[in-house]
Write a protein that binds this DNA or RNA. Structure first.
Lengths: 146, 146
DNA sequence: TTATCTGCAAACATTTTGCAGCGAG
DNA sequence: CTCGCTGCAAAATGTTTGCAGATAA
């Protein structure tokens, strides 16, 4: 376990308050605005630390940024992330896991690992958004929109 | 359509020869080694061009690099990528697509899009690899290995 | 001919690292 | 008191861009 410093606590509090996916830079800015004296590197270090301890989830937005959020569900799961506001639902489906393993095995692959994230517009943002607008959290990689 | 320059042709040929996921930098190096005079920026530009025309698949390795491969299957599909050698199988499962839509809808999300890639060791690399070694293409995000 | 493409290097954005000093335990 | 943590700024990565000159059509 790492030391509980003022900065680490601030990062945790911020994550706790937000409960949506945020980039390290965003967290950093938020903390600064809130009057906290923290360095960007420290935010990165703490976020990573928390992530490797399994306290926060990390996911990579399509533009390459890493996004962090407090973990609510300790097990393996995926996310349904709103690309507008960053809000996310944790979703876990054993069907997927099983299917992944199966397919991989069929192809002779071992040590299989998968990543899967769903991006969309949450109910709130859907209502507020007419049609074309994407930003903040995730933009399409594979144009599915099915 | 873009102009078919010597460089663009070289990139295409390289992709054709490799038929595995490669980073722009790798393609660049390969071309240079093969005696081609190309600039890194040009490789990036061509790879992107080809990608946006749907001629190549792009996927993001876990370390953040973008990997490219000639597209064989024009429709929506996912990949089972060997993290050792970059070899990949294209896999498409409508079950997943349907499930994704369904779950998203249940949560009130619209304009849903998903990304999913499977990383593992292909049969060949599995045989050649004892246990712990990961590099080149993908490293785990979510430790599943189930 | 001429609009597009290329090569180079400089610019970018995000993340990491080196190091002297601070501070939790 | 000690060793880990912090802040800063500099370095590293992977990718993009500006621009003068080359070149496909």
């Amino acid at each position: 376990m790492q030391r509980m410093t003022r900065q680490r606590q601030a990062v945790l509090d911020e994550l706790r308050r937000i409960d949506d996916f945020r980039s390290a830079q965003q967290v950093f800015e938020d903390l600064r605005e809130d009057g906290h004296r923290v360095g960007l590197a420290t935010v990165y270090r703490n976020l990573q630390g928390l992530a490797s301890e399994g306290d926060v989830d990390v996911l990579r937005a399509v533009d390459g940024e890493n996004l962090y959020r407090l973990c609510t569900n300790r097990g393996h799961h995926h996310h349904l992330v709103c690309r507008q506001c960053g809000h996310a639902e944790e979703i876990a489906l054993s069907e997927i896991e099983a299917w992944v393993t199966e397919v991989a095995r069929q192809h002779g692959y071992t040590q299989v690992d998968h990543s899967m994230e769903l991006f969309g517009l949450c109910a709130t943002c859907s209502a507020a958004t007419p049609a074309g607008s994407s930003d903040q959290v995730g933009t399409s990689t594979s144009p599915t929109t099915d």
